[in-house]
Design a protein around this nucleic acid. Structure first.
Lengths: 331, 331
DNA sequence: TTGAAAGCGCTAACAT
DNA sequence: ATGTTAGCGCTTTCAA
């Protein structure tokens, strides 16, 4: 009933060569005559031979896979397109190789147990876990495998990471507001427990400091829309004179725009607003949101390239990818 | 330097039993004494033993993995959150098992070659490929592995699939418009080359037919925002008397709303609009979009459950998951 | 209930 | 340049 797939031995027999030769052809080693190589290739074709990955990795002590682990504790990762885009980038690079992509969304404790086992089946780890002390970070580090982080967790800077230039992007956004003639520029931050939030706040402060403007107009959000609305409400109460707001995420900016509209503050005439991330929704807010775009797919690609280098024993250096201001109507 | 992980043999030695016994404990077979079992478990604990998946699958002729293959030819899959949500659902079920999740976004020809090899490392396939004659479908079918489709490709109904009730949802939406007193109800379809588009059109027609209303107000879109705008423009030109539109996707509905606003048609007073999918953006259109929500995460979950049943030799039946009307301001 | 041993399909080291 | 062979770490008969 269950036809067994052809083995390497079968190929060798068919081609009239030894298994060693077949193996050499498969791993395109040198030291194989044209003749032998062709015979093997024909036999492979005729038999429809496909190497058995399990046997291969057992014998070669390679595992032929990388794992992409996403800490789904982090609602920000799953909420927006972030995660889908990163995957697309990762996949694009993986596709060029013989590696397989193992995906783990580790939420539960159960998931973490699994994670350990998955690690034992991989040659390296791509990690998206931005919270401080995420258990995945530790498990990955303990595994001894090469690990590349996406973004920098708060607290410690990972050995190898790829991050978007959050600070630079925030500075870009704020400088844009300044160039518009705004002088009483507030900010809504993403909280204080995440590195992205801090980096964006820092970029905002840098820009203001360089221009000699006050940084006192500040409210903390939590990267959610309702959090953004609440923060905007507070800002308006405490600093009714503000003429611009740099909001650390588009979701929060959407909430802030709602509040501004309710309060009758015209955007951008009276209050200019810039967001961050360029989520799809940014095109549909009223008015359309000026924002900072991160190269998320590129982030996935570069993470994967870096991991492959690490697996090959090279020592790549961490990367910060540039962000870009997308001008729309809100500023 | 490179510490080798402990093997099953090491565990056996430590526990003072044979490798056979350790293996039995690992696969929690019967016929193992309490004493032996405990000794093995202690040894595993002490040594920090983790089974080698490659060796295991080689010996057992199981592969311990399923592949989730997404045809990224299909922009609709990658564009919205669809794909991220499906993955979340798939992951949730996989997490309960010992299976690993292999991810393939197969766009290029190169990707398809890889796909074949990945198939040989898996026990089953979850397939998201909605276009007719998608090469992935054929490759998966040829592999002889159990395959579960998400959605139904046009042309042939797969043996095993999970789909959202597109027809029912469209009917729900249209009946809602009728209940609002609308009688000249138009539709913007998603084209004619995709099963979802057809199913939604069918639901629309059913509702109208049952109410004895005309189905003549029709324009084809392509599931994109600009396509929706263009279709709305045509509709307005050909049927200026329309008082409602059922739009087969939210993206198209967003485009349609833009056109209606430009033309000065008030929504929902003069023209009521219902979309489909409940993408995040639906909450941010002007006015907020009434739409039909699909249980996408559940789709991923049910697909995976079905695949696991197939792998275990059961014969599950295909599934259609209910959709739900989300009322907002546009109808 | 347990132990012993023969592979699973491949790679790599060693011969030739 | 090619053949030979001993494993890789596990499961699974078959005996005991």
């Amino acid at each position: 009933m269950t036809e067994r797939p052809p083995t390497l031995d079968a190929v060798a027999q068919r081609a009239g060569v030894s298994t060693g030769t077949v193996s050499r052809v498969l791993n395109n080693a040198q030291h194989v005559s044209q003749k032998a190589r062709q015979a093997v290739e024909r036999a492979i074709e005729e038999l429809g031979y496909v190497p058995n990955t399990a046997a291969r990795s057992l014998a070669a002590r390679r595992r032929g896979a990388v794992v992409l682990a996403i800490s789904s504790e982090d609602p920000a990762l799953t909420a927006n397109l972030f995660f889908a885009e990163v995957i697309t980038g990762v996949n694009a690079v993986i596709e060029e190789t013989d590696l397989q992509l193992l995906l783990v969304l580790a939420a539960s404790q159960r998931g973490q147990d699994r994670f350990t086992r998955v690690l034992h089946a991989a040659d390296g780890v791509l990690l998206l876990a931005l919270r401080e002390h995420d258990p995945l970070s530790k498990l990955a580090a303990d595994s001894g495998l090469p690990v590349v982080h996406g973004g920098q967790p708060l607290g410690h800077t990972p050995r190898h990471y790829v991050d978007a230039d959050n600070r630079g992007g925030a500075r870009l956004a704020t400088e844009h507001l300044i160039s518009l003639g705004r002088r009483r520029i507030a900010t809504i931050t993403g909280g204080t427990d995440q590195q992205v939030a801090l980096a964006r706040h820092l970029g905002y402060r840098e820009a203001l400091a360089l221009a000699g403007l006050s940084e006192k107009r500040l409210a903390h959000g939590d990267f959610t829309e309702s959090g953004g609305a609440a923060a905007m409400t507070r800002l308006l109460a405490e600093h009714p004179d503000l003429d611009a707001v740099f909001v650390a995420s588009d979701a929060m900016a959407a909430g802030a725009l709602d509040v501004l509209r309710e309060r009758g503050r015209r955007v951008p005439e009276e209050v200019a607003v810039v967001g961050f991330n360029d989520i799809v929704t940014a095109q549909h807010t009223q008015p359309a949101l000026t924002t900072v775009r991160q190269p998320i797919e590129a982030l996935g690609r570069e993470m994967t390239r870096m991991l492959i280098r690490l697996i090959n024993g090279e020592q790549p250096t961490s990367l910060i990818l540039p962000t870009e201001l997308i001008r729309r109507d809100s500023a």
